[in-house]
């Protein structure tokens, strides 16, 4: 852990790793998209609509994963008080929010032909995803409304940690609420009974999305470190005047 905690060393490792990560991302996207759009068969029930799965599921996975990651970085920052962990949590949030948003929109594009409605409150996953997006927006709002960076970091950590605990409670509540109000018209989507011919493409897309996030996250962290240096330089300049 301590090895990565030094910003200079972090930048060195990130800069060395980034070209490889970008190439792996590009290759995986090429294979995954070819699989998703060309080689995988249409579903016998859903037809071509099933292809939305290949962009919906990875986005949803990242939406959840990034939130947990944000909680992890916030916990590290809370315990070790290291600014780099704060930067990691801060830069992860907008990326997670975008993937969360994508999961919602593609989910609704999937829902319209399948359920006949753009939005089904009867689906617990859609509802919890929506609330997760709100948690992302709240976290980002904290960073943007507190000017002083160390103070913003300290507050944001707490908001993230409280949020992580609550996301699980929200998920549980929404699931429970759903069983309470199960409308007969909503078609329950099948469980993970995905055929092998589709699974490999889905997994490839999921890994491709994750690698893309990793690359974007490293670049955003690099920008964040640069922004901090610039801010410090500006403060010194003002002080010298």
């Amino acid at each position: 852990m301590q090895q990565f905690a030094n910003p200079a060393r972090f930048l060195k490792i990130a800069n060395a790793a980034l070209p490889y990560i970008w190439s792996i991302t590009a290759i995986l996207f090429a294979i995954g998209l070819y699989g998703a759009l060309v080689t995988t068969p249409p579903d016998y029930q859903q037809g071509e609509t099933v292809r939305i799965m290949y962009v919906h599921v990875p986005a949803a996975w990242l939406g959840l994963f990034i939130y947990c990651l944000m909680g992890f970085f916030s916990a590290v920052a809370f315990i070790y008080r290291h600014p780099l962990a704060d930067a990691a949590a801060k830069t992860a949030a907008p990326l997670g929010a975008v993937f969360c948003f994508l999961a919602l929109v593609t989910g609704s594009f999937w829902g319209k032909p399948m359920w006949g409605t753009w939005w089904a409150w009867g689906d617990a996953r859609l509802t919890s995803m929506f609330i997760l997006l709100l948690f992302y927006l709240g976290y980002m709002a904290v960073w943007s409304s507190i000017d002083e960076p160390t103070r913003a970091a300290a507050i944001a950590r707490i908001v993230a940690l409280v949020g992580v605990v609550n996301v699980f409670v929200v998920k549980f509540s929404v699931n429970w609420w759903n069983t309470l109000h199960q409308p007969a018209s909503v078609i329950k989507m099948g469980g993970p009974s995905i055929d092998k011919s589709m699974l490999w493409a889905l997994l490839t897309m999921a890994v491709a999305y994750t690698m893309l996030f990793l690359a974007l996250h490293l670049v955003s962290m690099r920008s964040e470190i640069a922004a901090r240096k610039l801010r410090q330089a500006r403060l010194i300049e003002i002080g010298n005047r």
Partner: peptide, 15 residues
Amino acid sequence: LVSLLVLPLYVPVLI
């Protein structure tokens, strides 16, 4: 900001 932060936390209580 309070509304944005607290309303999602209220979801379980409301349900």
